[in-house]
Simulated assay, not measured.
Amino acid sequence: MEKKSFTFDEIKQKLVNYCVYQDRCHAEIEQKMREFLLIDEAKEEIFLYLMKENYLNEERFTRSYIRGKFYIKHWGKNKIKMNLKQKQISEKLINMCFDEIHDDDYTKTITRIYEDYSSKQKGLQEYQKKSKTIKYLMGRGFEYEKINDIFD
């Protein structure tokens, strides 16, 4: 199948729409641009335009990503951080944006998931239930220390 070719302005508009639909990070724009086989100068120009017009804002992306993954998907900070690093977001920016998650919400979420999951473990000794539930929470990206704090 032949690839349709677009003008520079059409590509630029497509990337604007891509950013408007949902906050994006640089790596996602980079990936999207590969589909259009642009020369480096054109990529550069589009990047600068998207940033200048505030379509592309890495901090805003990071903040909305953190809110979504925590408040909607109920991921812990470790899993969120790992996924943001895969999107080439710097650790410094990630840590700065974690203030999007309120500490009491974090504790409540761990407690709620713990109780939900634990209550579904049937026919197990208490310690087996506890260790299985801790493993589950860690798999969702919650820190061992934070999980343990809930029991103390």
Rank of each mutant, 00 (worst) to 15 (best):
M1E: 15
M1Q: 04
M1F: 13
K3V: 03
K4S: 04
F6C: 06
T7K: 10
F8P: 02
D9R: 14
E10K: 13
E10F: 08
I11D: 01
K12L: 14
K12H: 10
Q13H: 15
K14W: 04
K14Q: 07
L15H: 01
V16Y: 05
V16P: 06
N17F: 09
V20H: 03
Q22C: 13
Q22S: 15
D23P: 10
C25H: 09
H26E: 14
I29P: 00
K32S: 03
M33Y: 10
M33S: 01
R34A: 13
R34S: 09
L37K: 13
L37H: 12
D40F: 13
D40E: 11
K43L: 04
K43W: 06
E45C: 00
E45P: 01
I46E: 01
F47D: 05
L48C: 07
Y49D: 08
L50I: 09
L50K: 02
L50F: 07
M51E: 11
E53A: 11
E53N: 14
Y55A: 10
L56N: 00
L56Y: 05
N57T: 14
N57A: 12
N57E: 09
R60F: 08
R60M: 08
F61P: 00
T62N: 05
T62Q: 14
S64N: 03
S64E: 14
S64Q: 13
I66W: 01
I66Q: 08
R67S: 11
R67K: 12
K69M: 13
K69T: 00
F70P: 01
F70T: 04
Y71E: 05
Y71P: 03
K73L: 14
I80C: 06
K81M: 04
K81N: 01
K81T: 11
N83R: 09
N83P: 01
N83L: 13
N83D: 14
K85S: 13
Q88L: 06
I89T: 08
E91P: 01
K92P: 00
K92A: 09
K92W: 03
L93C: 10
I94M: 10
I94D: 07
I94P: 00
N95W: 05
N95E: 15
M96E: 14
M96G: 05
C97N: 07
F98Y: 07
F98L: 12
F98M: 09
D99P: 04
D99N: 09
D99G: 07
E100A: 11
I101K: 00
H102P: 00
D105P: 00
Y106M: 05
T109M: 14
T111D: 02
T111N: 13
I113R: 00
I113E: 06
I113T: 06
I113S: 02
Y114M: 09
Y114L: 08
E115W: 06
E115I: 00
D116I: 10
S118F: 15
S119I: 02
S119F: 10
K120H: 08
K120C: 09
K120G: 11
K122W: 04
L124N: 03
Q125V: 11
Q128L: 06
K129P: 02
T133A: 04
I134W: 02
K135V: 01
L137D: 03
L137C: 09
L137I: 04
M138I: 12
G139F: 05
G139W: 06
R140G: 10
R140A: 02
R140P: 02
G141L: 06
F142D: 00
Y144S: 08
K146T: 01
N148D: 06
I150Y: 07
D152H: 10
D152F: 04
D152N: 12
